[in-house]
Nucleic acid binder design. Structure first.
Lengths: 322, 322
DNA sequence: ATCTATATACTCAGAACGAGTATAAATACC
DNA sequence: GGTATTTATACTCGTTCTGAGTATATAGAT
């Protein structure tokens, strides 16, 4: 492979930095005036950065004054026309998206940065209280036009199936992990502002569903939420978002905030304690309403003791050796 | 973000193309003379390629004359010194790795390409017949030196724990999905040829474990195998590797070839049939030794019918809504 | 006819899961 | 002070899933 000018491109590093406060899952965004929000991001510097991740860490450090703990690469997007503000403008940028987890300690010091509830960008993803009204009132009707606009019957059937599967219509259950699939479907159908911005044909049925973000940042955030919702079930990553000690209800509320669904309290306890993920501290929480709850701490040792600790998915794989 | 010369870098697209013949999991490699094998790869062309994946497809098409079906992005690597042949030489390249699945139909027509059993590169990963001897005879002893070479006791303990977890020593069970973790550990410990090539300090205990590959291609292949072993359990991707009709034993042998472990025959049947993943064709296989087996075909409809079809991992997530 | 290899049906016990009931311990309200 | 409300926590119960078999059927080989 020769270093040809044709093969030259810039790499953007973007981070979806998540934290949870009370019952609200937050993402750190850069907000300037009346423009769309953006994720913290910066270019990869092949001279200064030893690895992509170290590049991201230094960038985020400069931009947000945060010291990231858990960081995980998500996906690399390179679609033409889905990064620059207007198609054709600016350089071709390939963007590598990351998920980072942290806790909120003190106020943010960096200018123009703030924590925002991520359901502002994805209002159809929060099923904790009830099925979001926007699905039945706006999304489903708008999709009907999208299905009708298909080129032929086969294409229409395909679209209908995708919609049913993604949004859990008919007898299909809601799958909280399909965050990215749902966003991409809305994008294709022209129902999010990014579609119109990127000049998509379908954007005729344009609906401003959720808040728009700059570049492909809402796509990265969707990927981040999807990954986190999935990963929570087989790796104890939630604890990156928890303080040193917490009640089991606080832990449950954090998981619920992320997954966007409610959980069965007693079974959640059984699972968390049964896995040996936490240990009691003996102390009890004070500022509660009912009976005081015991404070627990995360047993970091589990990461070393047993390989497959999970907060959800079943160990048995059906494909057991024999 | 301005288009600064500092921020300019080449993007390499590499594909781990997998197929299974009989009981052998194969990967397509480019083999030229006595040099190390490489994966098919080429640079991303920001002018000609609309997306990263379409770039990969055209590149692979030109290089191998194969028309890829299933393609999935794996990871983007950008570590300094882990791509170029000698540290400091050549341009900085960020490489995006892909996994592709296909079937072998006829001989390969492209020059210098051939199918190779992937356990040639990872001899410690094949547990189908027995625990690979290389683990007890070469890997475990070499790791002892690696542990001793740690800077202090805490670092040594950390290394020991990682080794136990990765290679299933002591009472830890073998986890066939940790392919990448194991390779990275061997790389860090200087036990694969790439360590010495990249000029790592630890490479003192250099052991030529498995066949070496060019650039970071063995790392990408490790990622591909790990992803495929995991994904098989919750998505019916194996069928991309199967002919139109097959016996259940052939299907099982394919899964075993990939995962590197043996499965319980009766339970495998129960799972596959219970999930409605296959349907009988009425015909029976001929060239067998014992009682003829019925030929089955993949029920493609399942992809559209139910969301969570899986060939392994449990649906129930322990985190059920309520 | 018997052996061997494979296919396929069926059983069984234990673990995991979803969904509850029951009781304990605090505060809020009157 | 007594009662309602709220939250915590222990325990139960039926179902499904899973791992590990046994039993029987059907072919070719000797």
């Amino acid at each position: 492979m020769t270093r040809n000018e044709k093969h030259v491109v810039a790499i953007g590093l973007s981070a979806a930095i998540a934290s949870v406060v009370e019952e609200s899952p937050n993402v750190l965004v850069v907000h300037r005036g009346k423009g769309d929000d953006a994720l913290p991001f910066g270019p990869f510097d092949p001279l200064g950065h030893r690895t992509l991740e170290s590049g991201l860490r230094t960038w985020v450090g400069e931009q947000t004054y945060l010291d990231l703990g858990y960081v995980e690469q998500l996906y690399t997007f390179g679609d033409r026309g889905r990064h620059t503000l207007k198609p054709g403008e600016g350089a071709r940028v390939v963007s590598v998206g990351y998920l980072a987890l942290t806790r909120q300690r003190g106020a943010l010091k960096a200018p123009d940065t703030l924590w925002r509830d991520w359901y502002r960008y994805f209002p159809w993803e929060d099923w904790r209280d009830e099925k979001p009204a926007v699905i039945g009132e706006a999304i489903a009707p708008a999709f009907e036009a999208f299905v009708k606009a298909a080129s032929d019957k086969a294409a229409a059937d395909l679209r209908r199936d995708r919609i049913r599967l993604c949004f859990g219509l008919g007898n299909i259950p809601w799958d909280e992990e399909k965050v990215l699939d749902r966003y991409e479907l809305l994008y294709e159908a022209g129902l999010v502002a990014e579609s119109a911005r990127d000049g998509r044909a379908e954007a005729a049925h344009f609906l401003p569903l959720g808040d728009c973000m700059m570049f492909d940042h809402r796509r990265i955030l969707a990927t981040a939420i999807a990954r986190l919702r999935g990963k929570m079930k087989y790796r104890p990553v939630v604890f990156e978002l928890m303080p040193a000690s917490f009640t089991l209800l606080e832990l449950q509320r954090t998981v619920e905030a992320i997954s966007g669904i409610r959980l069965h309290k007693q079974n959640f306890r059984r699972l968390v304690e049964g896995q040996g993920l936490v240990e009691g501290t003996g102390k009890v929480s004070v500022l509660a309403r009912g009976r005081p709850a015991e404070l627990f701490r995360f047993r970091r040792e589990v990461l070393r003791e047993r390989p497959g600790v999970r907060l959800g998915a079943r160990q048995g794989q059906g494909l057991r050796s024999s």
